[in-house]
Amino acid sequence: MYGKDEVKKTKEAFWTAYGQYMRVIPFEDAEKQSWINYKTGVKHLFFRMEADHQSARIAIELDHPDSGIRALMYAQLEQYRNVLHAELAEDWNWLPDTQNEYGKEFAVVQTSIRANIMEKADWPTLISFFKPRMIALDSFWSSAKYAFEIFK
C-alpha cells in the first residue's frame, strides 16, 4: 500500500505544513510553545495529535506508570470536565483505563475522525480538525494547569 519512506515523508510534510499554518496563532499564555509538540509542563500529561491512513485523533493522555497516581490525575481532569467541554463545545470520549498496542496502560480523553494523512486532499480536513481543538486545549490549559501542579 504505502512504503515506509513514503509514509514518513508524507507525515513529516503534513506536520510541517500544519506547524507553519498554526505559527501565526498566539498561545493563551505568553509562554513560548509549540502547537505540534505542546508542553503541558506536567510529567505524564500530554496533548497528542495523531494521524494515519485511516483516522486522526486528538487527545489528552495521562500515562503515569503508577496506576493510583494516574487515577488521581484522571479524577482531577474530571473535575474540569465542564470547563473542557465549554472550551471544546463538544463531548470527547473519556477512558480512565485503556492500553496501547504495546500493553502500556494510560487514561485518555479523546476524539477522532476518519481521514487519510496520505491523501493531500484530506489535509484541509485534518487541519480543520486539529486547529480549533488545539486552540481550545490551549485555552483550557491556561486555566486548568494550576490544578495539576501537585503532579509536577
Score class of each variant (00 low, 15 high):
N82A: 15
E6I: 15
P96L: 08
W35P: 02
I150C: 08
F14Y: 02
E119T: 09
G19E: 03
R133A: 03
I150E: 11
N116Y: 12
D52T: 13
K120M: 11
D122H: 02
T40C: 12
V42E: 09
L88R: 09
I58Q: 07
F46P: 00
G3D: 09
E90L: 14
R48A: 12
K9L: 04
P124G: 02
R57A: 11
E50S: 09
D138C: 10
M118I: 10
L137A: 03
W141M: 04
S34E: 01
R114T: 15
I25P: 00
E78D: 11
F129A: 06
V108E: 12
P124D: 01
D122F: 00
A51W: 04
Q99R: 09
V83H: 03
L45A: 13
N93P: 05
Y2L: 09
S128D: 12
K9E: 07
S143C: 13
D52C: 14
A75Q: 13
L77W: 10
E31W: 14
D5H: 05
E12T: 05
A30P: 01
Y18W: 02
L88E: 08
K104A: 08
P96H: 05
V24G: 08
R23M: 00
D63R: 08
Q33W: 01
Y74V: 04
D91W: 09
L84H: 03
M73S: 10
M118D: 14
T125L: 13
T10W: 00
E119C: 04
G3C: 11
D66T: 10
S55P: 02
E50V: 10
T16V: 00
R70P: 12
A136C: 12
Y38F: 14
E61W: 00
S139T: 15
E61F: 00
W92H: 07
L72T: 15
K104H: 05
Y146N: 12
F130D: 07
E50K: 12
G68Y: 05
F14N: 01
A115W: 09
M134Y: 04
G19V: 01
T111K: 14
D138A: 06
D5F: 04
E87I: 04
Y102F: 14
K8I: 06
V83S: 03
L126S: 04
R23K: 07
K120I: 14
K9V: 04
A51I: 05
E119S: 10
W35G: 03
R23W: 01
W123H: 03
D63L: 03
Q54N: 12
W123C: 01
A13C: 03
L126Q: 03
E12D: 06
S112I: 03
R57T: 13
Y102W: 13
S143G: 07
M1N: 03
H85M: 14
L72E: 15
A13Q: 01
L72K: 15
Y74N: 06
Q20S: 02
A121K: 02
S67F: 05
N93D: 15
A56I: 07
M73Q: 09
A56M: 08
A144D: 12
S55C: 14
K8A: 13
S34I: 02
G3P: 03
I135P: 06
M118L: 15
A136E: 08
A89N: 14
A17M: 00
Y38R: 10
F140Q: 05
S67D: 11
V108Y: 02
V108Q: 09
N93G: 09
N116V: 15
L77K: 14
W92L: 09
D91E: 15
